[in-house]
Design a protein around this nucleic acid. Structure first.
Length: 351
DNA sequence: AATGCGGGGAG
DNA sequence: CTCCCAGCATT
């Protein structure tokens, strides 16, 4: 049988992959559901951080139907600590779409898969290739880095044109004989060998890597913009009455949508006619785009006082509140103040 | 074309 | 500290 010639780049990284690949659970399956779950978890997330979440979520929701029918709050509780919580909400929306529009059968082509909410060009290519061996090249952060260095591509990866250019290049290198293997190989190569600070002395591509040959590896990939960090102050009142807490689910499209929190002080006009006990402030919470400082107080409301419940808030038992997803900032606030009795009851059993 | 969205690990 | 991670949705 006639085979199309393998580009030296492709042959080299696939040989390297055969030797150096990690054993990861989502590589032991062809189940598109499990592969999809792993890919959503791994968006902008390191393997080491996502691994325990993958095991937990797959155990809790073994099938698309289980995921589609689960209460969203349970999913967000399991997602707690992983960040980018819209991933979890879109995951369930997509599961419901698969049940409704695909009769519960996971879509099998790139063009169908990419219609699922939370699935973009990278994730659709990953699922289509890994589960169905469709020859769609993946382009993620690893691929940007590897290809930009090896072929000295000076396109700014932050530009809108970058995806198209790198997709075309990757697509020209993907072998029809093993698209899944190539996609796995190039990403693993970026993750383990062609890292942000690589050791080019042990690289199998060093002899024809264009940036290595010109000693300009550190100049690639070209990336222009950096996200600016805004400072935010968030003050919480932990309000208790008759063993219950005044809490709410965050709504709107801002940070931590779908997660739960204590009473958030919106302005200085907020007050209660009771003494506040200052709590230990959690550490400054650093995110990619936010620097959040937080102060908090504990307020015990007498049993017989009829407190007007603010819009959006509800009284909730500590055990119910523990079962809701919360931000890591709030979890830190809780675990740093366990001398406050009611906070012991909402201390998480797992992150 | 820009911006928002989480959290953590590596250097 | 800075960078960036198996990115995507929204504006």
């Amino acid at each position: 049988m006639q085979k199309s010639p393998l580009h030296p780049f492709s042959a080299t990284i696939m040989a390297w992959y055969a030797e150096h690949q990690r054993e990861l659970p989502w590589r032991q399956t062809r189940d598109p559901y499990a592969i999809w779950l792993s890919e959503i978890i791994l968006q902008q997330t390191r393997v080491a951080q996502g691994l325990p979440y993958y095991e937990r979520l797959l155990a809790a929701f073994p099938t698309v139907r289980d995921l589609a029918e689960a209460p969203e709050a349970n999913l967000l509780r399991l997602w707690q600590g992983l960040g980018y919580y819209s991933r979890a909400r879109n995951l369930q929306k997509a599961a419901q779409m698969i049940m409704r529009d695909f009769a519960g059968v996971f879509p099998q082509t790139y063009d169908e898969i990419i219609r699922l909410p939370g699935v973009g060009p990278y994730t659709a290519a990953a699922i289509a290739s890994f589960a169905f061996n469709e020859a769609k090249a993946v382009v993620d952060g690893n691929v940007f880095r590897v290809l930009s260095r090896v072929f000295a591509v000076e396109t700014d990866i932050a530009s809108s044109a970058a995806r198209g250019i790198f997709t075309e290049l990757a697509q020209s290198l993907i072998p029809a004989s093993d698209p899944a293997g190539f996609n796995q190989a190039i990403m693993e190569f970026g993750a383990l060998q062609c890292t942000p600070s690589p050791d080019c002395s042990v690289c199998p591509l060093a002899i024809f890597c264009q940036s290595n040959l010109t000693k300009t590896v550190a100049n690639f990939p070209v990336k222009s913009k950096k996200t600016q960090v805004k400072a935010i102050q968030m003050d919480y009142l932990i309000i208790e009455q008759k063993g219950h807490l005044l809490v709410r689910e965050r709504v709107g499209n801002g940070i931590w949508k779908g997660l739960w929190e204590f009473y958030l002080l919106e302005d200085q006009a907020d007050w209660l006619p009771f003494s506040r006990q200052a709590l230990k402030s959690p550490p400054v919470h650093l995110l990619s785009h936010r620097k959040i400082t937080c102060d908090a107080w504990y307020v015990q409301v007498p049993d017989n006082f009829a407190l007007a419940i603010p819009e959006g808030y509800v009284w909730m038992s500590p055990s119910d509140f523990e079962s809701k997803g919360k931000s890591v900032l709030l979890l830190n606030l809780i675990t740093d103040n366990l001398e406050c009795p009611i906070l012991q009851d909402i201390s998480p059993t797992y992150l």
